[in-house]
Computed example of a mutant assay.
Amino acid sequence: MNTLIKLEIVRALRNKRFMFFSVIYPPVLYMIIAGGAGSAKVPGTALNLNLYYMVSIAAFGAMTAVLLGNSERIAKEREKGWVRQLRLTSLPGRGYVMAKIAAAATVSLPSIVLVLATAGAVKGVRLEVWQWVAIAVATWLGSFVFAALGVAIGYLASGDAVRPVAMLVFFVLAFAGGLWMPLTFLPDWVQNIAEWLPTHAYAGLGQSMEVGDAPRAKDVALLVGYLLVFAGLAAWRYRKDTRKA
Rank of each mutant, 00 (worst) to 15 (best):
L7F: 13
L7Q: 12
E8Y: 07
I9Q: 01
R11Y: 05
A12M: 10
R14Y: 04
N15C: 02
F18E: 05
S22A: 15
V23G: 01
V23N: 01
P26R: 02
V28C: 12
Y30A: 06
Y30N: 05
M31L: 15
A34N: 10
A34Q: 06
A37C: 08
A40F: 15
L47A: 03
N48H: 11
L49R: 14
Y52F: 15
A62E: 06
V66R: 05
V66D: 00
L68P: 03
L68A: 05
G69N: 03
N70F: 07
N70C: 09
R73I: 08
E79H: 12
W82N: 11
R84M: 14
L88I: 14
G93K: 05
G93S: 13
R94F: 09
R94Y: 12
V97M: 09
A102N: 06
A102T: 05
A103H: 00
V107S: 00
S108H: 04
L116D: 04
E128I: 01
V133K: 01
V137C: 03
S143D: 03
F146S: 01
A147G: 15
A147N: 05
A148K: 00
A152S: 11
A157L: 06
A157H: 08
A157D: 09
G159D: 14
R163I: 11
F170W: 04
V172A: 14
V172S: 08
P187V: 13
D188M: 08
W189E: 11
A194F: 11
W196E: 01
W196F: 06
T199R: 07
A203T: 15
L205M: 13
M209D: 04
E210I: 13
V211Y: 09
R216K: 14
R216N: 13
K218M: 04
V220D: 10
Y226K: 03
L227M: 10
L228T: 07
V229C: 00
G232L: 02
L233V: 14
A235T: 15
Y238H: 15
